[in-house]
């Protein structure tokens, strides 16, 4: 991928906590102190995720599973619109 394309993609990436509710996203990167824990429960790169609610603890579904996670964890997940 060219540098320009990489830049464009980075710009459109959001963290899961910034993402708007009711939309589908694809996980671009999981980065932060809890990344292993997040990957283990299903927030792996490439996976599709739908955000359901906002708030202190947000709800989302990954492959048909409902998961609740706190904001500081959601901050460690970067997504792009799917």
């Amino acid at each position: 991928m060219s540098n320009l394309a990489l830049h464009l993609e980075r710009d459109s990436a959001l963290t899961l906590s910034q993402a708007s509710t009711g939309c589908d996203f694809q996980i671009r990167a999981v980065d932060g102190p809890a990344c292993r824990q997040l990957r283990d429960i299903g927030f792996c790169e490439q996976m599709r995720v739908r955000k359901l609610t906002n708030g202190r603890n947000m709800l989302c579904t990954v492959c048909g599973t409902r998961l609740a996670l706190s904001k500081d964890l959601a901050d460690q997940i970067q997504v792009i619109p799917a």
Binding site: A34, I41, L59, L69, L73
Partner: peptide, 11 residues
């Protein structure tokens, strides 16, 4: 460290 919350909600 502040507590973190990550939980599966079964159907």
């Amino acid at each position: 460290e502040p507590p973190q919350f990550l939980l599966e909600l079964p159907p």
